[in-house]
Design a binder for these strands. Structure first.
Length: 662
DNA sequence: ATAGGGTTAG
C-alpha cells in the first residue's frame, strides 16, 4: 500500500504514539459502521485530532474511499481541524490508487486556493514520491497542478510547474499547455501567451496546429493579423501546417479591422492551399460585411452559402436576423425567428437582444415586452445586452412609467423616481440594477459619467468612477477621455495633468481594436484623447502646443482621424493661414479621409473671412456634389458671408435653396 | 474560429 510509505516518511518528523494509533482506529471504526454524522459530535474529534491522526485515518486501507472523502470534507468545513498539506497529499495518493483524477483535481484546487497550503511543486513531488515509485503518477500530478493553476489564473505558479517539469525532464503534453494558452488568451494577456507559446516550441513539447490556432486567434481578435500570419509562416517551416481554425481567425482579424477585401482574399488563399471553408468562414465574412453596414451584401453572401449546401445554425440565423433588423425589415426578421424555432434551433440571448433592439428602433414597445417575456418563459435569462437595450430605450424615450415596470422585472428596488430628467432617470436605474445584483459594464458607466460631466456635476462623475472601481470594473481610456474633456472645457489644466498621472499609475489602457493597432496593443491614450487636448489648446490659443501634439500623434502611431484634421484645419483658418489649412486638407484626403460638414464649414468660413467668395462657393458645391448634405449652420455661414461681402442676391438665392431643402 | 447593445473629441 503506497500510502503506508507516506506515513513512514512522515513519521520521521512525527513520533507515533499508541494513543494516536488508538484514536485513529476508533475513528476508522466509527466511520465504517455509520456515516460521518454521529462522529461530528463525538469526543473523539474534540480531543486528540491532530495532523498525524488524520493521516492515519485517511491512509487506512480498511476505510472506504467514500468514507475517506466524507471525513476529509468534514474536516474542511471544520475551522478547528482544517486538513493540512500532508492530509491533502495523503488523500491524493489514495485517490490515485483508484485513478480518481477528477477528485485529485479537486484536492489540488483546494491546495492552490489556500495560501497556507500552497507550496512549490518540488515539495509536493518529493512528498508524494515517498509513497510511490510510479513515474506516471508524478507526471500526472504535475500536469494536473499546472492545469489547476492555469484555470485559476495563477500564471506565475503555473509557469513554476512548467519550469519544474522541464528541469526534471517530465514529459509535458500539448493539451496541458493549451490550458494555459487559453487562460492567458481569455485574460487578454496576449504578450505572455505569445512568449509562453514560443517557450513550448523551444521545449520538447510535441505541438500541433491546435496550439498555433489558439495564439493566432488571440492575436487576430486584437487586430494583429500580420503578427499572426508571421507566426503561422514560422510554424510551417517547423513542419506544422495551420488548420481551418487558424485561417478563419486570420479572416476574422481582417474583418475586425474592416479590411473586408483582404478577408475574402484570405478565404481564396486557404482554398488554394486545399482547406475547405466551413460555416464559420462564411459567417465571419458575413459579419465583417455587417460591421461595414453592407447588409445587402451580407445577406446575399449568406444566401450563397446556403446554396452551396450549408445549413443554418444558431449563429447564421442570428446574423441574418440582425441583417433584416438593421435594414428595418422586422417582419422578415421575425419570420426567420419563427423558422429557426420550427427547425429546432433554440434562440438565445443574442437572438432576443437583436430582435428587441430592432423593435426598439421601431418604437414597438409591445413587441419588445412580448419578446422579453417569451425569453424568460423559455428559460433564456436576459443578460446585460438585453438590459442595456432596455435602459437606453428608457433614457431615449424618457418613458419613466415603462422604465419602472422594467425595473420591477429586473429586481426590486425601493426608491421611486420623482423627476423626468434623463440623467436622474438613468442614475436611478443604475442604482436599482446594482441593488438587484445586475452587473453593468464599463460602457454603461461611461455613458452616465459623461452625462454627469455634461451637466457639470463633476462630483457625481467621480462618485460613479469610484463605484466602477469598487466593483472591479476596468476604468478605461474612454472614462478618462470623458473626465479630461470636462476639465479641459473648464480650463483646469492642472487637473488634467493629474488625470494623466493617474492613468499612468493605474495602468489604464485603451481596450479597443477599432482605432489603430498600437492602441490595440495597449496604448493608454487614443485618437480621441489627442483630439480633446488639441482642441483645448486651440481654444486657449496655445497653437504651438497644439501643433506639437499633432506631430506627436504620428510619432506615437496614433492615427489622426477626420476630427483631428478638422480641428487643425479650423485652427489654421481662424488664424488666417489658409495655405496651411488647404495643405492639411490634401494630406487628409490622401489618407483616404473624406471631409465632412464640419471640415467644409471651417474651410468655407476661412475663405469668406478673406473675402474669397468664389472659392467658398466652389467648396460648397464640391461638398454637395460629394453627397454631404448641408445643414442650417453651414447655410448661415454662407448667407452671412455673401451678404457681408455685398452679394445680397446670392444670399437670397441660397436662402431659398435652404428653405426648399427644409 | 463566427453572431447582439451602449461611451468620449471637431
Amino acid at each position: 500500500m503506497s500510502t503506508q510509505k507516506l506515513i513512514r516518511a512522515f513519521s520521521r518528523t512525527h513520533i507515533p504514539s499508541n494513543q494516536h494509533q488508538e484514536t485513529a482506529s476508533n475513528i476508522v471504526q466509527a466511520l465504517s459502521y455509520s456515516s460521518i454524522e454521529p462522529l461530528k459530535h463525538s469526543p473523539l474529534i474534540r480531543s486528540t485530532l491532530n495532523s498525524y491522526v488524520v493521516q492515519l485515518v485517511l491512509s487506512n486501507p480498511r476505510l472506504s474511499l467514500r468514507s475517506c472523502l466524507q471525513f476529509f470534507n468534514f474536516l474542511r468545513e471544520n475551522p478547528a481541524h482544517k486538513p493540512d498539506l500532508a492530509a491533502h497529499l495523503t488523500l491524493i495518493c489514495r485517490l490515485y490508487d483508484v485513478r480518481k483524477f477528477t477528485d485529485i483535481q479537486f484536492v489540488l484546487n483546494c491546495i492552490a486556493n489556500d495560501v497556507n497550503l500552497r507550496t512549490p511543486v518540488s515539495n509536493i513531488v518529493s512528498f508524494v514520491e515517498h509513497c510511490t515509485v510510479d513515474p506516471i503518477f508524478v507526471q500526472k500530478l504535475c500536469d494536473m497542478l499546472f492545469r489547476v493553476y492555469a484555470d485559476n489564473g495563477m500564471f506565475k505558479e503555473a509557469t513554476g510547474v512548467f519550469d519544474y517539469m522541464e528541469k526534471s525532464e517530465i514529459e509535458i503534453h500539448e493539451r496541458c499547455c493549451m490550458v494555459l494558452l487559453l487562460a492567458l488568451r481569455s485574460c487578454d494577456k496576449m504578450d505572455t501567451c505569445f512568449s509562453f507559446f514560443q517557450r513550448i516550441v523551444g521545449a520538447k513539447v510535441e505541438i500541433t496546429a491546435k496550439s498555433v490556432a489558439i495564439v493566432v486567434s488571440g492575436l487576430c481578435v486584437r487586430g494583429e493579423v500580420e503578427r499572426a500570419k508571421g507566426l503561422m509562416e514560422v510554424m510551417v517551416t517547423k513542419g506544422i501546417e495551420p488548420d481551418v481554425l487558424a485561417y478563419n481567425s486570420l479572416i476574422n482579424g481582417y474583418c475586425i479591422r474592416g479590411m473586408l477585401e483582404e478577408a475574402i482574399k484570405m478565404k481564396a488563399i486557404m482554398e488554394h492551399k486545399g482547406f475547405v471553408p466551413n460555416v464559420v468562414t462564411y459567417s465571419t465574412i458575413a459579419s465583417g460585411m455587417c460591421k461595414l453596414k453592407r447588409y445587402e451584401e451580407a445577406k446575399k453572401w449568406l444566401f450563397a452559402m446556403i446554396k452551396r449546401g450549408f445549413t443554418h445554425n444558431l449563429v447564421t440565423f442570428n446574423i441574418l436576423i440582425n441583417i433584416y433588423s438593421k435594414m428595418g425589415n422586422l417582419n422578415e426578421a421575425h419570420r426567420l425567428f419563427e423558422e429557426m424555432k420550427e427547425g429546432g434551433v433554440r434562440p438565445d440571448n443574442v437572438t432576443y437582444s437583436t430582435l428587441i433592439d430592432g423593435y426598439s428602433k421601431k418604437g414597438d414597445l409591445q413587441e419588445m415586452m412580448w419578446l422579453f417575456e417569451e425569453m424568460e418563459k423559455g428559460g433564456v435569462s436576459p443578460n446585460m445586452f438585453v438590459y442595456n437595450i432596455l435602459i437606453n430605450w428608457c433614457c431615449e424615450t424618457e418613458n419613466l412609467e415603462e422604465a419602472e415596470r422594467i425595473f420591477e422585472k429586473m429586481k426590486k428596488g425601493g426608491v421611486r423616481p420623482d423627476t423626468n430628467a434623463k440623467l436622474e432617470e438613468a442614475g436611478l436605474l443604475l442604482g436599482k440594477l446594482e441593488k438587484g445584483g445586475v452587473r453593468l459594464d464599463t460602457f454603461t458607466y461611461n455613458t452616465l459619467i459623461d452625462a454627469y460631466c455634461k451637466e457639470e456635476k463633476l462630483e457625481q462623475s467621480y462618485k460613479l468612477r469610484g463605484c466602477m472601481e469598487a466593483r472591479g470594473l476596468r476604468v478605461d481610456t474612454v472614462t478618462y477621455n470623458i473626465l479630461i474633456d470636462a476639465f479641459c472645457k473648464k480650463g483646469y489644466f492642472k487637473e488634467v495633468e493629474r488625470l494623466f498621472e493617474e492613468m499612468e499609475k493605474d495602468d489604464v489602457r485603451a481596450n479597443e481594436v477599432t482605432y489603430t493597432i498600437m492602441e490595440a496593443r495597449g496604448l493608454r491614450v487614443n485618437t480621441v484623447t489627442y483630439n480633446i487636448l488639441i482642441d483645448a489648446f486651440c481654444n486657449k490659443g496655445y497653437f504651438k502646443e497644439a501643433e506639437r501634439l499633432f506631430e506627436e500623434m504620428e510619432k506615437n502611431d496614433v492615427r489622426a482621424n477626420k476630427v483631428t484634421y478638422t480641428i487643425m484645419i479650423d485652427m489654421y483658418c481662424n488664424r488666417g493661414n489658409l495655405t496651411k489649412a488647404h495643405k492639411l486638407r490634401v494630406v487628409m484626403e490622401a489618407m483616404g479621409i473624406i471631409p465632412d460638414l464640419y471640415t467644409y464649414a471651417s474651410l468655407i468660413n476661412g475663405e469668406f473671412s478673406f473675402g474669397k467668395l468664389d472659392v467658398a462657393l466652389k467648396l460648397f458645391s464640391e461638398m454637395k456634389q460629394r453627397g454631404v448634405i448641408p445643414d442650417l449652420f453651414i447655410y448661415t455661414i454662407i448667407i452671412l458671408g455673401l451678404s457681408k461681402h455685398g452679394r445680397p442676391d446670392g444670399a437670397l438665392r441660397l436662402y431659398d435653396e435652404m428653405i426648399e431643402a427644409g
